[in-house]
Design a protein around this nucleic acid. Sequence first.
DNA 1: TTATAATATTCCTTGACGAGAATATTCCTT
DNA 2: AAGGAATATTCTCGTCAAGGAATATTATAA
Lengths: 112, 112
Amino acid sequence: MKNSGMDITTLSALAETNRMNIVQLLRDGPLSVGEIADRLGLRQPQASKHLKVLSDSGIVEVRIDANRRIYTLRSEPFQAMDIWLQSFRHMTEERLDNLDHYLRELQNKEKP
Amino acid sequence: MKNSGMDITTLSALAETNRMNIVQLLRDGPLSVGEIADRLGLRQPQASKHLKVLSDSGIVEVRIDANRRIYTLRSEPFQAMDIWLQSFRHMTEERLDNLDHYLRELQNKEKP
DNA sequence: TTATAATATTCCTTGACGAGAATATTCCTT
DNA sequence: AAGGAATATTCTCGTCAAGGAATATTATAA
């Protein structure tokens, strides 16, 4: 359900409090649905639903262990986010490329 | 509208195609509303609305230049995402901590 | 095989969000 | 001051996602 490169579904999956909490929880290791629901004060159906969203977006993978389903974080989406973020790193260099912006705005003003 | 630390509003602001496109556009430098709308094939009102969302979440800041409003990417949210992502880096080390998981699952099985 | 634990799924209702169209606002220009 | 350009705001409508409650599914254990 995921190739490489940042997908918007990754972001929208994480852009919900409960799912974000689940992800933070799973940082420390795999957990079953029941454990997740317990620790986050969720009802089991809601936990399952959120886990499905996370699973569909490739953030999480499931392993069947008897009655339980053990959910684990996948690393790929986070690596993809990381790579994507690299294209924004130059911003930290606080405008050493001011010339570019200056020229750009000149163009805008000359447009009409 | 933003302190430090990853905020979920950052993610939900980015989790929309048009806003993501705007952000990608602004990577190359500040732009006015009209420019953004033109290049992305958006109508001006929609562009303004999306820019408001981005602005409210602190992803973007605005500078008034005569009739125009020039929107610029802010670096803080991306730095925050970056820091947040660091807590997931250990995943890349593909399970050298398997012992931890093993013990954890043992505990789960002994629970009932 | 039946009862039970763990999890998934469905149905329903409600609230949020995005697009479209129209209008309001602000500022420049003449 | 008036007209026009650039941008923001409002309203409505349709869609979609989330929570709640009930139920279905699957697998274990007795």
